[in-house]
Design a protein around this nucleic acid. Structure first.
Lengths: 111, 111
DNA sequence: CAAACACTGAAGCATTCACTTCACTATTGC
DNA sequence: GCAATAGTGAAGTGAATGCTTCAGTGTTTG
């Protein structure tokens, strides 16, 4: 399920930028062309393309060009990998807390 | 559930660095002091403290100082917020795919 | 009390980032 | 074929990042 650490790195790096997250957000509602992605963003088309290339390199977005328009869509597997990383750490922590809680209430029973 | 966009920004920013993710990973297995966090990392203590301060500002980690040692632990609510952001986008995309699939198989039925 | 310990903070420095502009290449529509 | 469209690529710039070193500050411990 894509546990390549370098890939994970590029993914979190990609998600770190607000403009890129906004692009992912837009794409989560359906595919879009580069100019459509650019439209709500207060920056040049060129800047958007640079962000997009990063998103593609990170695996979060896939694009294909038909004629002169590049259509972009979300790659859910990559999103799932990032989600999974966070989830595992959080669960590890929470399981630890649970065990600690049990331990405390048990040792309370033993006078 | 902490939807402050600036906070989300700081969180993803914090997760973007491999050293900081390694620190979070370590903390998911239980609390640690600054020097314990620093131990596996190939950088100065000072650098680690700088990362740690970022992690704390992002809300991902909480610390408290007793005597001369600062003990750090994970703040699972923050992790959950990041997880949630990703999850929502992924689900939106997947629901869209599902609807599309239904639509296609339905229109196949109508000759 | 002195030395060791566990950080903390400021300054500096090299690299990376997020842009910009401008020039350029394919497509498409008239 | 020519103009408009959709995007690409390279170079440059200023700000942000990720370190380093070094000089502290409190806190324990022998």
């Amino acid at each position: 399920m894509l546990h390549d650490p370098a890939q994970l790195d590029r993914m979190f790096q990609a998600l770190a930028d607000p403009a890129r997250r906004q692009m992912v957000d837009r794409l989560s509602r359906g595919p879009a062309s580069v100019s459509q992605l650019a439209e709500p963003l207060a920056m040049s088309l060129s800047a958007v393309v640079q962000h997009l290339n990063l998103l593609e390199a990170s695996g979060l977005v896939r694009t294909q060009k038909l004629g002169r328009v590049r259509t972009c869509q979300i790659e859910p597997t990559a999103l799932r990998a990032a989600e999974h990383w966070i989830n595992e750490r959080r669960l590890a922590w929470e399981r630890r807390l649970d065990r600690l809680g049990e331990f405390l209430s048990e040792s309370k029973d033993e006078t």
